[in-house]
Design a protein around this nucleic acid. Structure first.
Lengths: 161, 161
DNA sequence: TATTGTTATACTCTATAACTATA
DNA sequence: TATAGTTATAGAGTATAACAATA
């Protein structure tokens, strides 16, 4: 999916044809390093999931539905921090692929309950296997304590403490 | 710029109307927490920079040019991990606002050397002030040691060790 | 009045491919 | 042959606004 970063992230490679620039003040910004790390993982995820054609967010929706059967689009949007319209588009794409389905709620007829389909559950099972190897590549960079500290720090950032 | 996340990230607020779902297996994924943290900082950045209408990446380009005068689009793309076409669009937008300018290279006539304009330098000075308060909000969440460890961990992720 | 889903719209981001001019 | 810039194109992501049905 991303043929990007031709030489840069290949381990044990010699210097680039065009060497990376001095990052200057960017080096002091948490947001800069967070963004670079996020992009690195995002791309590895995309490459790993290429055969299944699932994005991080699509997988997130499916994992949420695996645990929260019948959740609404608003539930998903609130949990993942997006708005209704964005979630609508995301759900549309997954529904078009028959991975999830909408069912009208009996209790509140404004709502549509979202469910994984059989195909969705099968896809999720496959995805989890691929994700394991993807995650492992980054887990291997850290000790258990380091990883715990990293996850705690990231949570603190987006939960605002 | 982002009126998003209506209740979620307000400190000391009671439960949401629609409470966040159980994140299930997502809670174990580094990529999930990294993405959530990135989005949180990205939005705070966007809100902070609203008056200047500068994105994280636009600022990154300007900071890079502040230190690496005359760098090419390829240089910037390699450093920030994007491709030529994406950087082209980014540079176009900054150039259209007269914040940076292209100058033909004497040494290699395929190249354009990029420079901050006077307006660009002024904008950057303003931006740095706003960024300080933005960064401070997140720095305050951590001790010095915690922040050092966090930055080191993030670098390890995108530098592949 | 407020909420859920929905549609329409628009702009940004990202990447691919192909062209051009240089090297 | 390879590289830098460029253009065209397309799809995904993101958000706003407005409407209908329902609460």
């Amino acid at each position: 999916m991303t043929k990007q970063v031709p030489q840069d992230d290949v381990e044990g490679e010699e210097a680039l044809v065009t060497p990376p620039l001095d990052v200057g003040r960017l080096g002091d910004l948490l947001g800069f390093h967070l963004r670079m790390a996020h992009v690195a993982i995002y791309r590895d995820f995309a490459d790993t999931m290429e055969e299944l054609a699932l994005t991080q967010k699509q997988l997130a929706v499916m994992e949420l539905l695996a645990v929260n059967t019948g959740a609404s689009q608003i539930d998903l949007a609130n949990t993942l921090g997006t708005d209704r319209a964005t979630m609508m588009a995301l759900v549309n794409r997954l529904a078009a692929r028959d991975l999830i389905e909408r069912r009208p709620s009996q209790a509140d007829r404004r709502r549509q309950e979202l469910h994984l389909t059989e195909a969705g559950r099968a896809m999720l099972a496959q995805a989890r296997k691929l994700i394991d190897s993807h995650e492992q590549r980054f887990i291997d960079l850290f000790s258990r304590d380091e990883m715990d500290a990293l996850l705690a720090a990231l949570k603190r950032i987006y939960k605002g403490n």
